[in-house]
Design a binder for these strands. Structure first.
Lengths: 129, 129
DNA sequence: AATGGGGCTAACAATTTTGTTAGTCATTGT
DNA sequence: ACAATGACTAACAAAATTGTTAGCCCCATT
């Protein structure tokens, strides 16, 4: 549980109020989260399927991350009728789907520089330096 | 210092190797980081200017975040000649500048849903916009 | 009767991140 | 003589996140 009177919490709230960028990043930045969103978008939308894709994750941790994504309305949990034991699927909402291309562009940004794109300081990116 | 033999570290490495998306997010997800990138992109590229924009940050913390961004080549530090006390400016690299529009789109994503865009589970995800 | 899904939860421990305190340095203005 | 400025750093403390352990439930199959 977060301590509402801590500097840590207060600073986080300040950033959330300054710009939605900060809340957005905090939603996707938990361990495993963006990878979970990606796998669900690819159709691996069951608890056990996600476990298969992420062999090192524990069930406790996976359940926790899914619950947090659900709390931010990135996904919803749906029981699958007439399954024994009860099956559950995780479906991205439109809010979750909208995130997918943005995460893709982050992925691509990372790849380009990991693949050796030259890094330099632009001479004059905005006519102010 | 990170413990290289901890599960925490090993899992992080696993995600980094799985997709650059995960390293990319980890670069921008530290407290204050995306906001610092934004302010530098807007021309607030001095230590004391960033402090003005982020009144609650401590100098220790600001210096730490800047050093981490520098380690990831998002920005570089440049001494300003003939200043007393020594002035320093922080310049985004092309890698840093490339991040700016992606952070903008995250910001916009957050805003749209904060402003009340309806959230639902798309019947057919391919039709979502 | 025991095992194996499938999908969890609570309590706790380990690790990591963030924030605090108290300095430094070299010069200029009062 | 002394404070102020700009830009830090080391050592430590607080808080948050992540991972571990040990369980639960319900039904089907061996």
């Amino acid at each position: 549980m977060r301590k509402k009177q801590s500097s840590n919490y207060i600073n986080e709230q300040f950033l959330f109020e300054t710009c939605e960028r900060n809340s957005a990043i905090s939603i996707v930045s938990g361990r495993w989260k963006s990878q979970i969103i990606y796998y669900i978008s690819q159709g691996h939308n069951r608890f056990h399927l996600l476990k298969q894709q992420l062999p090192a994750i524990s069930e406790t941790v996976l359940a926790r991350q899914l619950k947090e994504l659900e709390a931010h309305a990135i996904l919803v949990k749906r029981e699958i009728a007439d399954t024994v034991p009860t099956g559950v699927k995780y479906l991205l909402t439109n809010k979750g789907w909208d995130l997918v291309p943005i995460l893709d562009s982050l992925c691509n940004w990372g790849k380009v520089y990991a693949d050796g794109k030259e890094i330099f300081v632009p001479a004059d990116p905005k006519l102010v330096q």
